[in-house]
């Protein structure tokens, strides 16, 4: 089982890597990047004032596409100095990207962990109340998860400004200042939406488990409600939750981008937003930076879950 699991994960790793490289170079397939970049550089150096005579269309440049993929791969494997272009100058990518990456990932991981913990606690609280009263928290959850993330982020920010205006009490630091960047509030906001999603999926899983015969059997045997809830139902629900966790993670990444823009944080996602259009290789490298650690994390988690719960009898999928 260990070997087949390892082989499967390896295959998944290779496939995802291939498709990251394929995605990262896409701009070279669709645009004449080289000539466009030349024109852009000329404009930014003030060598070109009039662009009205220039015309271009969407192209299908397979050769350039292949070349760029090859170059990106060479760049990544040789470990050479990677540079990116911004406002007429070239900058070195590497220490900068790592710093931004660690900073943003601290936000992301902290947010996810807090969201997860709060979600588990609130699910258990909701589960412990009886079926009819549950409709209200479920309704609130439904409305909250329907709201787009930028709405929630903006509302939270404006709420804090409003509290500040009314009471003179700045609950959290809301934007980047000379004294530093806000930490606590972004993390809390970031934990909000994943938390809501986790609660939703956990609640669904718990309610499904509640109907299972083993719960009735355990109740009739005289096990306490809490013991069943915490040990038996929780264990089975974690498996379902894990299957959804990857999409929650993607969702949290999108949240992170919006958050960094609204809170004016100089982070990994804003760097991607500012620079990856002109430098598609930045996108490829950044995607790998996100992909590799989280893939390893997910795989280890999956392996652990499979070993603990399935005892080699099946695969999680």
């Amino acid at each position: 089982m260990t070997l087949s699991f390892f082989r499967k994960s390896m295959l998944q790793f290779i496939l995802t890597s291939i498709s990251i490289v394929l995605i990262g170079s896409l701009p070279y397939l669709l645009f004449n990047m080289k000539s466009q970049l030349d024109v852009l550089m000329m404009i930014e150096r003030n060598e070109l004032n009039n662009t009205l005579f220039l015309h271009d269309t969407i192209v299908f440049n397979i050769q350039e596409y292949g070349m760029h993929m090859w170059n990106t791969l060479k760049l990544m494997t040789s470990g050479g100095v990677v540079e990116y272009y911004q406002n007429g100058k070239y900058y070195s990518l590497f220490p900068e990207l790592f710093e931004l990456f660690t900073k943003s990932m601290v936000y992301l991981v902290l947010g996810l962990v807090i969201g997860l913990v709060v979600a588990v606690v609130s699910t258990i609280v909701i589960m412990s109340i009886s079926g009819k009263v549950r409709a209200l928290p479920k309704m609130i959850l439904f409305v909250l998860e329907s709201l787009p993330d930028i709405f929630i982020i903006l509302i939270v920010q404006l709420l804090i400004i409003w509290i500040y205006q009314k009471t003179g009490l700045l609950v959290f630091n809301i934007t980047s200042t000379f004294e530093g960047e806000p930490v606590l509030l972004p993390v809390l906001v970031l934990s909000l939406l994943p938390g809501i999603y986790v609660t939703k999926y956990l609640l669904l899983a718990f309610e499904y488990e509640e109907e299972q015969p083993y719960v009735k059997l355990a109740l009739s045997k005289g096990l306490s409600k809490w013991r069943i809830l915490f040990i038996h139902m929780f264990r089975n629900s974690v498996l379902t939750l894990f299957n959804h966790f990857k999409s929650i993670f993607t969702f949290a990444l999108a949240n992170l981008l919006m958050l960094e823009i609204i809170f004016d944080i100089d982070g990994f996602m804003t760097f991607l937003y500012k620079n990856s259009v002109l430098n598609p290789e930045v996108l490829t490298i950044s995607l790998f930076l996100v992909f590799i650690p989280f893939f390893i994390g997910f795989t280890i988690l999956k392996w652990g879950l499979e070993r603990k719960f399935w005892r080699g009898e099946g695969m999680l999928d």
């Binding site: 496939l15 498709s19 701009p27 990857k246 993607t250 981008l257 937003y273 990856s276 995607l287």
Partner: peptide, 21 residues
Amino acid sequence: GLADALHYAPITVFTYILITP
């Protein structure tokens, strides 16, 4: 397996990179 790569960056980022030029 290939589509799994879309899990490691939000769809907004892909769209942005392809539309912005």
